[in-house]
Design a protein around this nucleic acid. Structure first.
Lengths: 236, 236
DNA sequence: GCCCGCTGTCACGGGAATGTCACATCACTG
DNA sequence: CAGTGATGTGACATTCCCGTGACAGCGGGC
């Protein structure tokens, strides 16, 4: 399993530095943002697996970002842990209601934070691993590593499977070729961006073999990349 | 679930006492034997669910008992954990080959021992729920250690039998070679991953001798491993 | 001793999957 | 409607993965 990306959102550089240290020791990849704007940019750009969010930020507090993340379909599955001061514990309830996955009060032991993060990631992966992803009559069975459409197995290569898996986990959002390479092929792999096009085509072909309609699930976003959109299937 | 009986075989009374304490805290029922003869009597008499076997015993070592247990049909399914001193780690490989389920080197933390015991029992209970597994006309008889297809016995080696047993207990799911080695060969055994391929082939051959259709039950998942899929049998 | 069944390893060959390219086609701009 | 840049598509060489047969080692039984 590849290293998980974690985004730290805090305005104090010293705290960010401390967290980066703790995270990297535990084999997490660490991104940093000092304000909400930068945080949002990194979330859409770098697609982290988790966010550590300080509650008190200058210029709009963390709650605002959290609400925004939970509202948008593309990011609402992204787990968020709130970092909050003891003196503001009343915010905790508020934060959990909006959709934070956990919270931890400052000052905290890095070890405890890491433990909670792992617990959340474990829970998420076990939820995902045992189940299957479904869009209409299209079912992606993770365990058996098969894609079924109306009881019939669709044939595709491993890369197309991973690609479809990623798309079905993140619907209704456009991804650049670079982002897809990062998330599907894995970081630190150098291949041409146009390679993505070829695999997109192979995936479309595989879906088309099941039912031409389903090939339209993968849409081209000119100048940007590709998007997986179940929404348009229902309309058609 | 009723309390599991565990037989401790060790010549030192102090170690037996320590283990009894640890086991009873964790709700196991504890039997004790100081030598091989007594151990064998208790096994046939009391039918324990598991054996903790010290490797170095006066008057015939643990290996002898282990070999005997694995040879006889009535006891070969009985899980055995070896207790061995650090200085005799070379025996571990030998022991695992003969059929020990796991080993632990002295000195050890009781907690870790308990954890390994539970892991083994959990694994067994998931596979040996019934004495017979059935897929279509294929019947795997666990007690008699035979595989029948349309009243005809299929010939295969012990490893192929265990492999098929595992597959029939976990259908419709792809397993990597490493996972199969772990679950079928047993933990901590070092063999080449490609060895799995060879046994898969032998198993397929055995099934094919019964009916070519049944060889297709074991499918290759390219880039991942293998899958046992009764579902596709029904379709054909 | 000999033979025989079982096991793990290897080398070879074939075929699937991959990444890249060249060219066709499309969408947008002025 | 021509032009330009982005995307679709078929073909290709390479790499990787898997199936297969052969073989040596090892115990056990005769």
């Amino acid at each position: 399993m590849s290293a998980k990306k974690v985004l730290v959102v805090d305005d104090e550089a010293s705290i960010r530095e401390m967290l980066r240290l703790a995270l990297e020791i535990s084999d997490f990849e660490c991104l940093e943002a000092a304000d909400i704007h930068e945080a949002y940019r990194l979330i859409t750009d770098e697609l982290p697996d988790m966010v550590l969010l300080d509650w008190m930020l200058p210029g709009g507090n963390g709650m605002e970002l959290l609400r925004r993340l939970k509202k948008e379909e593309a990011t609402q599955a992204l787990p968020v842990i709130m970092l909050t001061a003891k003196t503001h514990e009343e915010n905790v309830i508020q934060g959990l209601e909006v959709g934070a996955d956990d919270y931890i009060t400052k000052p905290f032991a890095p070890k405890e934070l890491i433990a909670r993060m792992k617990a959340i990631l474990r829970r998420l992966s076990s939820e995902k691993a045992s189940s299957e992803l479904r869009v209409g009559e299209l079912v992606l069975e993770i365990d058996s590593r098969r894609v079924m459409l109306r009881q019939k197995a669709l044939e595709m290569g491993p890369t197309e499977f991973k690609l479809l898996n990623f798309f079905m986990s993140h619907p209704e959002r456009a991804y650049s070729r670079a982002q897809l390479l990062d998330r599907v092929w894995g970081a630190n792999v150098y291949v041409e961006e146009r390679t993505v096009d070829v695999h997109i085509r192979r995936l479309r072909k595989a879906l088309q073999a099941g039912d031409p309609i389903y090939a339209d699930l993968i849409q081209t976003v000119r100048g940007t990349g590709y998007r997986f959109s179940p929404r348009d299937l229902a309309v058609a």
